[in-house]
Each structure stands twice: as C-alpha cells, then as structure tokens.
Design a protein around this nucleic acid. Structure first.
Length: 562
RNA sequence: UGCCCGGUAGUGUAACGGUAGCACGAGUGACUCUGGAUCACUUAGUCUAGGUUCAAAUCCUAGCCGGGCAACCA
C-alpha cells in the first residue's frame, strides 16, 4: 500500500477512497477519470481537478483516464484536445487511457433503444418552447407531454428515423420517462438526445443525434469501470439522474462525489469569458501570460511544482470559497526561490559614473548563482566606470527609513564595491539624469576590510556591457477581487485592468542573460522572478516576462508612510 | 416560494463527542552582501437560538446567511 493510504487522508474524497479500499467496496480497485469538455483551454480550475483525479490514482495505486466529454459538436475542437493533453503532461501527470465519450455513441444508442423497449423513455415531439413550459417552475410541478404515452413500437420507429436523419433539428427529442411532478427539476423527464445536423470534430457526419451530458457521463464512467466519479458541486443536482440511468440499465455503478470548484481572486475561470478575451483580442491568445490558463501560467513562468503545491495547499471541500491570489504567488515564490538562478537587471536605469575608476577599464566580479542552492555555482559579472542602477534606489531627499543611495551616502553594489554618491547631475527641468560617485577599491567583492557596514546593497549593470532587452511587467487581468461577481446588466469587461501589461522597452541586463533559453526562469535580484518569453524571444534577443515580484517590505513601509 | 448543498481567525483549511491546530496575510523582533530568504514571537475563529450529553465545531431541531437547479450546455 502506498504512503498516502497509510497516513491520514488529506481531504474528504481521499477519505472515502481510503475507506472503500479498507472495506473492499470495489475489490481493491481505484479508477478515476479527468473528464474535460474540449471547448476551451485548461485553466487553473482544471489544474485542481487534474491534481485531484490523477493524484488520487497515483497515491492509492489506482488508474486515471483522460476522457474527453465531447457530446456537444457545436463547441468542441481538436485544438482544445491537444491543449489538455499538453498541459496535463506539463503538470506532471500521465493518463492510463485516452478516451472519448464520442466513441461510446453507438453503445449509448443501443442502451437508449433498450430503455425505449423497457418503457423508460419516449420520443417527444413538442417544440423547445413547449418542453420548457411543460417543465413547470421551481415551485410548480410540470405537466406530462402529450407524446408521453406513445407505444414502444412508435417510439422505436421514431428514434431510429431520428438517427437516420429523417427529421430536422428540433423536431423530436428522446426523453427519460421519470416524473414531471418531481421536486427535483432534473428528474422531470430529462432530455437524452437532440437532433443536430452538424458534424462532430471526431465523428464527422456519422451522427445527427447527439446524447446530452446526463445521458453520456454516467454511462461513460460505467463503461470505464470508474469507481469514484469526482466532479464539481454544480453536478450535485444531477446525481439522482446519474444514479437513475445506471440503475435502469443495471450496469456498473460508480459513486459520484462532488467538490467545490476553484476560484482565485482576480482570476477568471469562466471558459466562456476566457474565450471572449481571446476572440476579441484583449489578450495575446490563450497562452497570454496574464491568462489563468495553464498555458498562460506556463508562459508567465509558473512551474508545475508550484501549481501542484498550490493545489495541495488549498484542499478539497464542498464550500464555495475564494482563494486569495497571494496563496498562489506564495507557492510560486517558494519554489522559484529554491530553483531560480539569480541575475542582475535594471528595469528603470539611472546612469552612475564612478569618477575615481579608471576610464576604459573593466573587470569581472564573482557572483553567486543561487544562495539557496550552493550547487548552482558562481558566475562572473563585468564591472566598469559607467553603470546603471535602479532609479528608485536613489532619492535626493530620503525619508528616515530609506536606506538606499542619496547624496553623501555610502552603499554597496552587490558583489562589487562600496560607493559613495558625490554629486547629482540634473537636466534643465531639474530631473536627476546621472549620479557621480566614488568607489573604495579596498571593498572589492563587497566587504570592507575595516569592517564598516552599509545599510543597503544595490543591484547594478555595467553600461558598456549591458544587454538591452524588453521586459514585460504584468498585473492582474481583473481588478475585481471576485472576478465572477458581476451584477446583472453590468458588463463584466468593465473590471478588465487597463494596466495589466507594461512593456519596458530598454531594460539593462547583465550580459550572461543574452543566451538564456526560452522558458528559463531567473530571479532578477531585488525585483522578482522573470522568465524568457517562449513566443516573442529570438536567439540572442530574449524578451522577459515578470512572473511575480519578490516580497517587498520597503514598498509596504513606503505605502504606509512610516 | 420547492428541492439539493454548504457556513471554523482577514483568507484558505484541520480537528470524525474529549485541550480548536496549520498555512497564507498582517504585526514585532533576530539575522542577512537581495528591505530577498531564513528564524522566533504576536494577532485573530466555531453563523444564531434551543436541545441531547459528564462533555458539542462535531449529534438533533428551528432560524439566519451563502451557493446550485426551471439549456435540446457541460
């Protein structure tokens, strides 16, 4: 038995699985499935479900299928199938079988005929509008369709002709004969088949009738021998129907278990809205680094480990919660801090000239690649008389708690020397355009032999050696904390952040970054984590995406106005 | 209004009738060649009202609040 089965289950679903294993309910089998509809790219919410379904199979020695729930030909596409497969693998999971609900269409059809013969279903020929009216309301029961008592022979004949393509869209549907007076709306003779004369992305023109979700899902689960059919809360209402079909058919009957879908603050998890953003060009495709899609997060610089750790962190419950974006970012930083090599980069450059450093001279200084990981080694960084430092690291008139550079003050340049600001050069408008400094040659490497201390260490880049690169800074796409909270009549796009992307055209980077591979991740010291954009970079000319900033306690003090 | 589900520090979660923990956040301090990281401490919670019990976050009842359900979507 695996470790997870020995120790305390992490959530109520794993508790059920562990208990079923203990009692031998499924003969020691654990079979789950991840059942996306291929009608969009997988997002952070899918990541939670992927980690759950594949994770449970892995932890309990079971299997997990990837099954595409593709019973609606109007929205589905192969592009989305490929996206799911790519992203599941990137997240670190592998399916035991790749399956498609559309491959079960014939079996489903045969079962439907059987239910007709047994009097459990009928062909309804009412219009869409009549069916809707007949369903009743939340408080009033529905009324029986006038076609409800057709003979088995008539039902069978009609259903076969539906399949044969004799009728136009909407002419008939196949309905389960359950109870129009049921208090569960889902049980008021739910629809099993609709006529749609449209090709299916996998089945082509083989079918013109398509099964609905309710008629497809449970039977697909059954066919695959699923033991625990894990889905999101909104399907809780459908469970009586899930059970009803399986009981009528008398086939393997998995247990459906529902959990709360993931919601992260400032992130959209509506596939419809994400599709709208892509189609209307609000973003640079499904994998725009601002998108909550797995491909967007990947391009942004997220790691699979960070995403998996996040999913483990947030837990699994039946409570509809809103997880703060900070929790996601914290999981990200935790992983990147341990793994990302450090580099120096100046986003908003301020020229700094060291007056007592010989003109034309340069040298290389040793820098540590990752203080959290000694095995990452060191590298050499060029230093010279003219440097760039970050504009916000200098203040002519500093407040008390500002430790960085100001006139007359000495600070350390990381891995280099102590410098003292001697003069401020301004343009006619009074803007600071350049700093003149002196350095102490005795502090080479960053330590003073006399033991004197400085309060700040600044990052810097040698001007003549600098790599000039584009860096993209991202902010949340949605300004609202709860992105799904939209008043009726309100345009959800009103909460789109107009400043979600800032492009820094000419950042100064240390030259070692010139050949950074697409997708590779770095910590730009004191700024944050950045990765090489896989879409816009070209060899020797990397474009960097800011993945996430570092925690910044100075920013907090500054904002507080201490 | 009917049915189903759910309410534990600011947020997310644990506790399975027996001392309400953890994480993120926030605050304070230590350390530091990243105002990073790390470490220590602090902050703050069982929706309400009854009931059962020696003992209730946990079981029961009622209420309050939140979510879902009236697509030929999933």
């Amino acid at each position: 038995m695996t470790a997870a089965a020995d120790s305390k289950p992490a959530d109520f679903i794993r508790e059920i699985v562990a208990e079923d294993l203990r009692t031998g309910k499924w003969g020691g089998r654990v079979q789950t499935r991840f059942p996306p509809e291929p009608n969009g790219y997988p997002h952070i919410g899918h990541a939670k479900s992927i980690c759950l379904n594949f994770g449970i199979a892995r932890e309990f020695g079971g299997k997990c299928n990837l099954r595409f729930d593709d019973s609606n030909p109007e929205k589905e596409d192969l592009e989305y199938v490929e996206a799911f497969k790519r992203d599941i693998r990137w997240l670190g999971f592998e399916w035991d079988a790749e399956l498609y609900a559309s491959d079960y269409f014939e079996q489903l059809y045969q079962w439907a005929e059987r239910l007709i013969e047994e009097g459990h279903t009928y062909v309804d020929s009412q219009s869409l509008e009549e069916i809707r009216r007949g369903r009743g309301t939340l408080t009033e029961p529905g009324v029986d369709s006038p076609y409800r008592d057709r003979s088995v022979a008539e039902n069978l004949d009609l259903f076969r002709r539906m399949r044969g393509g004799e009728f136009p869209d909407g002419a008939h549907v196949l309905r389960a004969k359950i109870d129009m007076g049921s208090k569960h709306l889902i049980m008021r003779d739910p629809i099993m088949y609709r006529i749609r004369h449209v090709p299916h992305y996998r089945q082509g023109n083989a079918w013109c009738i398509y099964p609905t979700y309710d008629w497809t899902h449970g039977q697909s689960d059954s066919l695959e021998g699923i033991t625990h059919s894990i889905c999101t809360l909104e399907f809780e209402n459908n469970r009586p129907l899930y059970d009803w079909f399986l009981d009528r058919l008398g086939i393997h009957h998995p247990q459906q278990i529902e959990f709360a879908r993931l919601a992260v603050s400032h992130m959209l998890t509506s596939k419809r809205k994400l599709l709208e953003l892509v189609r209307e060009g609000h973003v640079d495709g499904w994998d725009d680094p601002r998108m909550p899609t797995i491909s967007g997060l990947r391009r942004r610089g997220y790691t699979p480990e960070a995403l998996r750790n996040f999913c483990a962190e947030i837990g699994v419950t039946k409570y509809n919660s809103l997880t703060g974006l900070g929790v996601l970012e914290s999981a990200l930083r935790e992983h990147l801090n341990k793994t990302a090599p450090r580099a120096m980069a100046v986003l908003r450059p301020l020229k700094l000239v060291i007056e007592n450093y010989p003109e034309g001279q340069s040298e290389e200084l040793e820098a540590i690649n990752n203080p959290e990981d000694p095995s990452a080694g060191t590298r050499r960084v060029p230093f010279s008389r003219e440097l760039y430092i970050e504009r916000e690291d200098f203040l002519e008139d500093p407040p008390k708690k500002f430790f960085r550079l100001s006139p007359g003050r000495e600070v350390r340049l990381r891995y280099a020397y102590f410098i003292t600001c001697t003069r401020v050069v301004k343009d006619d408008a009074g803007n600071v355009v350049e700093l003149r400094c002196t350095y102490d040659p005795a502090t080479r490497g960053g330590d003073a032999p006399d033991g004197r201390k400085v309060k700040a260490t600044l990052h810097w880049v040698s001007a003549p050696h600098a790599l000039h690169a584009q860096v993209r800074l991202y902010d949340v796409l949605i300004t609202k904390e709860d992105a799904a909270d939209v008043e009726e009549g309100e345009d959800w796009k009103a909460s789109l952040n107009p400043n979600s992307l800032e492009v820094v055209e000419d950042a100064k980077l240390e030259p070692s970054l010139t050949d950074a591979a697409a997708g590779s991740r770095f910590q730009f010291e004191r700024l944050g984590y950045f990765c090489v954009d896989a879409k816009h970079s070209t060899p020797g000319r990397p474009v960097f995406n800011r993945t996430v900033t570092l925690r910044d306690s100075w920013a907090k003090i500054k904002d507080r106005g201490d």
